[in-house]
Write a protein that binds this DNA or RNA. Structure first.
Length: 649
RNA sequence: GUUCUUGUAGCUCAGUGGUAGAGCACUCCCUUGGUAAGGGAGAGGUCGUCAGUUCAAUCCUGACCAAGAACUCCA
């Protein structure tokens, strides 16, 4: 057989040859330096037989980062071996340590264990030392193909491995990878020897994970590690984690007094503090203005509704797990509102509609309640009571595309206003489990096709994800990545043929007959809670002037300047700006420091010079540090600030 | 919801089987200053809740509550 090298040369090899054999043919030095290979663009190791005719490249110790998934996977095995040795050294039998899966992941690896006693994070240094010892032993990592019987015999003590092996197809060879006396069932690929593995790794945390991800299975202890080709990359990664911690909206929410969650009020039920309320109201005002320009009409609906309403909509049946239990009053049952749509449908149905009336766009900042699992709750980003920037557009089928594109346009504008450029568009369609969805296939097919067509037309990059649809229709979600790479769903647009049918709503067409409208559900922010949470992290608490809960602080240099500062403060306040005076007895340096820590964007320092000229000395926070302007006329500054506030620039 | 970890002053955190401490914040006094911390004094805690072990529990044990991480889930 033969393979092709990167320069296009053909290399003839004996049948069953590996990438290492190929490297040896090319030169002994390359064979020594080689760590991994790619075959037809896919990463593989040096021990796996090559398929004939493939294009191969060799990855050497010059650029080990190209083989990161391999060394991360191998380090997972080293961790697994180290944990085994650790428990044996403490008197446990070798068979007492059982293992689940242990793959490479983004930035590192993990390994699941079933241990005779839990491993604590205090023991990580000892485990890491053992791992480094295994690296220094420079053990060869070897690959072997075995039969199923042999595989089962090898791991007879480990029910997890037995289950995995039993599930493997008979036809394919089962592979073992070994290093020293450690053997693991593994598909590979791996580095050729432990000595070649980078030592830039760190065990990060331990947690539990269900065996095979199923909540009805036993839990295993999962140990996470991160690993990089060099120490520098590892340090940078750890620094990014620190940065994420600094930007964490729960921490900033406390420091900047934006919101609090009080167990006495209830978990997942955030209380908006005055500063956070300013943020929220600015966002609301912004979107209301946009919606007014786009001919939306505001409506208001109650926070609970009759159970029959949700039975008609299907929310009661389809989401029984995540609804709050119904309340019984006077022989009737009510439920906390999990969605605004049914209410808006009833508003549509409150009078006859003509085709001339459509589209009808009903908007509400509607508060809904969903019983999220307690383990899911997270600051503002996952809560049990939240307010959606919801609207429902009822339109004729021929208006659907225009309306959908208009909503898309609004959403893109919203995201752009906050500089959220790294957004992913996700089209959620049905998957095979059809009983999860209501409505006819024809309606679904039409709606799915229309979303994909519209998104494609705007030229947005998107992915189609089966199973991500709502029960009543397909949807387009906007997903943003945060500083540490976690993805959060922001807004959503959904096309719905089903609720109109379930509620039997209609409009009178040109022909005088009744027709069924189509509904678009949309929420550009998603929810104000989650959006504010993400916004806090997005800006790291450094909000632009229009959003900053505290916009301006006046800093008198000495007490005799307090009256002047208060006069200016009152004038700014009358103009609608959020201004305050720091009249504490601290020195001016300390006041500046305090304002910096509070992330107040504009500081106005006033002393004798300023007072004389009715001026201020301006210190502004900028991403690059701060900017100072001295002797600015107060009247001019006020106009400038107002202009910036009103234009949201 | 499950597993693990954590819970001490408003905040960040030390600490001990004999009922507690620091820094910041707060109050008062002195200081009146020019772009990131002036000095002093004071006040503030059922050591998450409830049981148990003990002569004695904030500390040990258990349950519960809450938070964090991960898993599962997410209209």
């Amino acid at each position: 057989m033969h393979v092709f090298l990167p320069d296009g040369k053909r290399l003839d090899l004996p049948e069953g040859a590996t990438a290492l054999d190929a490297a040896k043919m090319i030169g002994p030095r390359l064979a020594q330096d080689a760590l991994a290979a790619t075959v037809g663009g896919e990463l593989t190791d040096l021990m796996t037989p090559l398929p004939g005719g493939a294009a191969i490249t060799l990855i050497t110790k010059k650029n080990p980062g190209d083989a990161a998934p391999l060394f991360r996977h191998s380090l997972g095995h080293v961790l697994s071996q180290a944990v085994g040795e650790y428990y044996v050294a403490r008197g446990f039998a070798h068979e007492a340590v059982k293992r689940g899966v242990g793959p490479a992941i983004e930035n590192g690896f993990y390994q699941d264990f079933d241990l005779p006693q839990p491993l604590s994070e205090e023991e990580f240094p000892a485990i890491e030392a053992l791992m480094r010892d295994i690296l220094s032993r420079n053990l060869d990592i070897t690959r072997a193909e075995v039969g199923k019987d042999r595989a089962l015999a090898q791991f007879s003590y480990d029910p997890y491995k037995v289950e995995l092996i039993a599930a493997l197809p008979d036809a394919e060879p089962i592979t073992f990878y070994s290093q020293g006396d450690y053997v693991d069932l593994c598909r590979g690929p791996h580095f050729p020897r432990t000595g070649a593995l980078p030592s830039a790794f760190k065990l990060m945390s331990t947690s539990s994970a269900y065996w095979r991800g199923d909540a009805s299975n036993p839990t295993l202890q999962r140990v996470y590690g991160v690993a990089f080709a060099g120490q520098k990359e590892l340090d940078e990664y750890l620094e990014r984690l620190e940065e994420a911690k600094r930007r964490d909206h729960r921490r900033l929410g406390k420091e900047l007094e934006l919101f609090t969650i009080d167990p006495l009020v209830g978990k997942g039920l955030p209380l908006w503090l005055p500063n956070g309320t300013v943020l929220r109201e600015e966002l609301t005002r912004f979107l209301r203005e946009q919606q007014f320009q786009r001919y939306y009409q505001g409506v208001i609906t109650p926070n609970i509704g009759n159970l029959e309403l949700y039975k008609t909509s299907g929310h009661y049946q389809n989401y029984s797990d995540s609804n709050f239990s119904p309340i019984t009053v006077d022989d009737e049952q009510y439920m906390l509102k999990p969605m605004n749509c049914p209410h808006h449908v009833r508003i549509y149905a409150s009078k006859p509609r003509s085709y001339r009336d459509l589209p009808v766009r009903l908007a509400e900042f509607g508060t809904v309640y969903r019983y999220e699992q307690s383990g899911e709750l997270n600051g503002l980003t996952r809560v049990r009571g939240f307010t959606q920037d919801d609207a429902h557009i009822f339109c004729r089928p021929d208006q659907l595309k225009t309306e959908f594109l208009a909503v898309l346009d609004l959403t893109v504008l919203v995201l752009g206003t906050f500089g959220m450029t790294d957004v992913r568009f996700r089209v959620g369609v049905r998957d095979a489990s059809k009983d999860k969805y209501v409505g006819s296939d024809a309606n679904w097919d039409a709606a799915e096709a229309q979303i994909i067509e519209a998104v494609g037309e705007v030229g947005l990059p998107f992915t189609v994800e089966p199973g991500d649809a709502a029960f009543y229709g397909p949807k387009l979600d906007f997903v943003i990545k945060d500083v540490i790479g976690r993805e959060w769903q922001l807004g959503t647009i959904q096309v719905d043929y089903n609720l109109p049918e379930r509620f039997d709503i209609s409009y009178v067409g040109e022909d005088g007959a009744d027709h069924r409208p189509v509904m678009i559900h949309r929420a550009p922010f998603g929810s104000l809670e989650r959006f504010v949470g993400i916004l806090i992290e997005h800006y790291g608490g450094d909000f632009p002037l229009w959003l900053a809960p505290r916009q301006v602080v006046l800093i008198p240099i000495a007490d005799r300047h307090n009256a002047y500062a208060e006069e200016l403060q009152a004038e700014l306040h009358r103009a609608g700006l959020r201004a305050e005076v720091d009249d504490s007895s601290s020195r001016m340096n300390a006041k500046v420091r305090q304002a910096e820590l509070s992330k107040i964007p504009v500081m106005l320092i006033v002393g004798d010079k300023e007072q004389e000229e009715r001026a201020v000395s301006v210190r502004e926070r900028t991403p690059e540090g701060h900017k100072e302007r001295k002797g600015v006329q107060f009247a001019e500054l006020k106009t400038e600030l107002l202009e910036r506030y009103q234009t949201r620039s």
